[in-house]
Design a protein around this nucleic acid. Structure first.
Length: 348
DNA sequence: ATACATACC
DNA sequence: TACTGGTATGTAT
């Protein structure tokens, strides 16, 4: 299970209170909360990526915190975290204010929006999101097979990616090289060879084109395909089609890829992460199945929801996508600050 | 119109 | 010692 690390579950409150018994205005608890949110933030943007399931994230965050304390980067993160904490206080205040009002109109508006979405729901297409596994690392390993058993990463000051052995130590893309070395002292750091990755990506794309000539590359190692036609023409299920495609990619390029299959690209993107590495996941084109899937899905898994939005949502009681529904009357007109539509415009 | 923040790889 | 660099998007002023 991912997301095992929870800020509130971290011990340490008592300790800080002992060290700072003189703190006024009840600050020490809040300071601890700040440390916790900061440490969580320091885990980085790729926290929910594959390969971290068995890693104790609170230990990792402790090491990252101590390794980077005092650095320019750290100080910037600390400031950002404080600003976000203030922003959240405003959000909570607005929420409390709005909850005292009659929000029948907003509830109806939200339900109307949902109805519109239901009407436009299209379950006729099979969309695939393909994602190469630890792409740069995999390409490097083709040239140096002996790397199979050593934890290594690709990148200079910052890891662009690392193999799954390194991930077991808590290493991740986006992490500073020296921090990664603290987590995994034997980590081997390789320089980037962009040309190699580009030409290998071309090989993968040649296979993809066989299944959907109009596929779209989302990055060097990611693509979206619509395999509806292919499945119909070959009388194959989406699952078999993608399994076959992944086999062919492996045969021709020696690269393993993961895939998600669903009714639209946003869902497919979420699904490609479910069985990483070298796996695939089918979300049936069935309303019930999709609803059940989304209900318990942590918001952070949705593309576009990162560290900041995840925390803002969590603080107003939304951890999973299913948590949104009971608060839809509050969220319906939300823009950045979820409740940042003045009371006046609400009542007019 | 411009600057800044967030997010993605 | 030391925390990418490029693009896209949305928000704030």
């Amino acid at each position: 299970m991912k997301h095992e690390f929870r800020m509130a579950e971290r011990p340490g409150t008592a300790k800080t209170e002992k060290e700072e018994p003189e703190v006024v205005e009840g600050g020490s608890k809040q300071d601890d909360h700040q440390h916790d949110t900061l440490k969580y933030s320091l885990l980085g943007p790729s926290l929910t990526k594959a390969g971290q399931d068995s890693v104790d994230q609170s230990k990792v965050s402790e090491i990252i915190y101590n390794a980077s304390k005092g650095s320019k980067f750290f100080n910037r993160e600390e400031v950002k975290d404080k600003i976000l904490t203030q922003k959240i206080e405003q959000i909570l205040e607005k929420k409390r204010r709005l909850e005292k009002l009659d929000l029948t109109r907003e509830l109806r508006a939200a339900d109307q929006l949902i109805t519109q979405l239901e009407v436009s729901r299209d379950l006729t297409q099979y969309i695939v999101h393909v994602d190469c596994d630890a792409f740069y690392a995999a390409v490097e390993q083709l040239d140096r097979p002996e790397l199979k058993d050593v934890p290594f990463a690709v990148g200079g000051g910052v890891l662009t990616t690392c193999n799954y052995l390194a991930r077991k130590f808590g290493c991740r893309s986006g992490m500073a090289g020296f921090v990664a070395k603290k987590l995994c002292p034997n980590l081997l750091l390789l320089p980037l060879n962009f040309d190699k990755y580009t030409s290998k990506a071309q090989e993968v794309r040649q296979v993809l084109a066989q299944y959907d000539p109009r596929f779209e590359s989302a990055s060097i190692d990611e693509a979206y395909l619509n395999i509806t036609e292919y499945c119909a023409e070959h009388n194959m299920t989406p699952e078999d089609t993608v399994q076959q495609m992944r086999n062919v990619i492996h045969e021709k390029t020696k690269i393993t890829v993961s895939a998600g299959i669903a009714a639209n690209s946003k869902l497919a993107k979420i699904c490609s992460n479910m069985n990483k590495p070298n796996g695939q996941y089918v979300l049936p084109n069935d309303r019930n199945a999709i609803m059940n899937f989304m209900r318990d899905l942590p918001t952070r898994k949705v593309n576009g929801i990162g560290r900041v939005l995840e925390r803002e949502l969590q603080e107003i009681g939304i951890k999973t996508c299913g948590d949104i529904y009971p608060q839809r009357q509050l969220l319906v007109r939300a823009r950045t600050y979820f409740f940042d539509c003045g009371t006046t415009s609400f009542l007019s």
